[in-house]
Amino acid sequence: MTAHRLLAPPPPVAGRILDAQLHLLDRQVLDHDGVPVTTVDDLEVSGPALDTELEPGAAAPVLSALLTGPVLGTRIFGGRPPASRLVRIPWEDVAEVGVVLKLGVSGENLDAGWVERWIRDRIIARIPGGRHDPR
């Protein structure tokens, strides 16, 4: 703790600081209408190549996508699902980072919500009264 207090602050940067664990991971994701889409289970970064010596001055990797997917089992038992099972939401679609992450696009067209859409269209819609709002 004492040594911690002596550390110098990092050089100032112009943009907003986002710590992955504190500001992004496990946050809820809403689409541009405020409809919940998913949560952020993991993040995809554009690089670097693993186990490769980094050249001094190499460009820093950037955040390329939010990842979501079937992580309940791996949260309990460890590990993570294969990358092919994770659904990507490109960082370009993210409009705002706050208590929740807001997207600038509609969630209706995102792969992240396909399970919910499938249940809505194939199961809920077949239940009498399931095609309209409750009255």
Binding site: P10, V13, A14, G15, I17, A20, Q21, V62
Partner: peptide, 25 residues
């Protein structure tokens, strides 16, 4: 590695700029 710190100051995009890796905690 306890966390990864990003800074939103990369190439501008339509909504937010690119978030580049600033460092590791």
């Amino acid at each position: 590695v306890a966390d990864a710190r990003f800074v939103v100051d990369g190439a501008p995009r339509q909504l937010l700029a690119e978030a580049r890796l600033l460092g590791l905690v």
